[in-house]
Design a protein around this nucleic acid. Structure first.
Lengths: 197, 197
DNA sequence: CAAAATAAGTGCAATGACTCAACTTTCGAA
DNA sequence: TTCGAAAGTTGAGTCATTGCACTTATTTTG
C-alpha cells in the first residue's frame, strides 16, 4: 500500500478521463442538449452503464470533484488575514475560485465552456447546486469564527448571501466591480450587527 | 361573451382541478417519488397525455399559477408606505406571502404539504425556481424606486438576497425572528449605500 | 339549423436519462 | 496459483415527457 497506483486504478481513472474528455468535446461541439449519454459512451468506447458507474448524472460529466471546495471555503473564513472582515475574506475567496470551479480550466476553449454552462439551464442549475452545497459548512465556520451560537441567523444569512453573490458576479462584465458592490452591502450590514468581527 | 364561462372552459378547469387534487392526495399519501404520473392520471380518470396538456411537468401539479406574484412583488416595493425602507417592505411582503405561495392553502394538511416540499429535492428546487423567477423584475422595480441606473449592481444584489432570504425564513421555527435578523443585515448594508432610500 | 372550425381528450409509439440483475474479464493479494 | 473483489458488459426495464394520428364534444358561422 505504498502509493494507491495499481494498474487497476490507473485504468479506472483513464476510463473516467476518456468519458469527461469525450463529453466536453461533444458538448462544446453540438451543444449539451443535442448530445445523448449514449453518444458520450460510444465516443469513449464504453457502455452507458459504465458511464453511470463513473458519473452519477449527465451533468456531472462536466464538473469535477469539489471535495476540497468546502474545506477551502471554511479555511477562507477561519484563516483570513487578521483585521480582515469575514465578508471581505469571502469576497476575495470567491473571486479567486470563480475560475477554478469548472473542470477543464486548462482547456483553451474555456470561454466557450463558461458560456455553455450559463446558457444551458440544466448545467446552470447543477453548477449552482454544487456551489451552494456547502452553505451549512460555511455558516458553521462563520459562527465559530465570531463566537455566535450554532444556529445564529445572521451568520446563516451571511453564508447564503455570500454564496449567492457568485451568480451576480459571474454574469457581469466587470467581476471585480460587481463583487465590490455586492459585498459592500454585506460588509456594512454585517459590521452593524457584529462590530467586533 | 358576457363572462368567459363556456361549458368547455368549465370542463377544462374541472379536469385540471381533478388532476391537482388527485396529485396532492397521492403525493401526501405515498410520497412524491413513490407516485408515478400515470397514477395521478388514473386517479383523475384521464390519460397521461391529457395530464401534460394541463401541467407542463410533474412538479407543476403541486404549485399553482404565480402570474400575480411578480406584480405583487413589484408593487410591494413601488407602493411601500412612505418612510419605509425597501428592505423593510420586502421583509413584510415575503412574510405575508410566504404561506400563500403554495397551491392548496386551504387544505388542512398544509403542514404536511410544506414538509413534503422541503424534503423532496425535485419539489424544493422547483419551488425555488418559481420563487426566484422574478428576480429581474424585482431588481428593476428597485432601481426605479431609487432612481439608480438600470444595471446597478447593489440593486440587483438586494433583489437576489431578499428573495434568497425566504429559504432561510422558511426553515426556521420562528419565521418572524429569522426574517428580522436576515433583513437587518440587508437593511443596514442598504442604508449605507443608499442613504436616501 | 347545418356544417365547418376549434379545442379537449385518447392511444400509441418513441426518446432519453437512469437503474437493475446477471454475467465475464481482469487484477491484486494471500 | 488461486480466489475474490472491482471494472465492465449486455439487456431489459422504469419513468417523465413529447409527437402523431385520431375521436368526440362544443362553438362559431354561414
Amino acid at each position: 500500500m505504498t502509493e494507491p497506483t495499481g494498474r487497476r486504478e490507473r485504468k479506472k481513472a483513464q476510463t473516467r478521463q476518456s468519458l469527461a474528455d469525450a463529453a466536453l468535446e461533444l458538448f462544446l461541439d453540438r451543444g449539451y442538449d443535442q448530445v445523448g449519454v449514449k453518444d458520450v459512451a460510444d465516443a469513449a468506447d464504453v457502455s452507458v452503464t459504465t458511464l453511470f458507474k463513473h458519473f452519477p448524472s449527465k451533468e456531472a460529466l462536466v464538473f469535477d470533484q469539489d471535495d476540497d471546495l468546502e474545506a477551502a471555503l471554511v479555511a477562507a473564513v477561519r484563516d483570513r488575514t487578521p483585521g480582515q472582515s469575514i465578508p471581505q475574506a469571502l469576497r476575495d475567496h470567491i473571486l479567486l475560485k470563480q475560475t477554478q470551479f469548472a473542470v477543464h480550466t486548462t482547456d483553451p476553449r474555456f470561454a466557450d465552456f463558461t458560456r455553455m454552462v450559463q446558457e444551458t439551464p440544466a448545467l446552470r442549475d447543477y453548477a449552482h447546486r454544487m456551489w451552494t452545497r456547502h452553505e451549512a459548512a460555511l455558516a458553521r465556520a462563520i459562527t465559530e469564527a465570531v463566537g455566535a451560537p450554532e444556529d445564529d441567523i445572521s451568520c446563516a444569512a451571511l453564508a447564503r448571501f455570500a454564496l449567492e453573490a457568485r451568480g451576480l458576479i459571474l454574469r457581469h462584465a466587470e467581476p471585480n466591480r460587481a463583487a465590490d458592490e455586492a459585498f459592500a452591502l454585506l460588509e456594512h450590514g454585517w459590521a452593524a450587527s457584529h462590530p467586533g468581527g
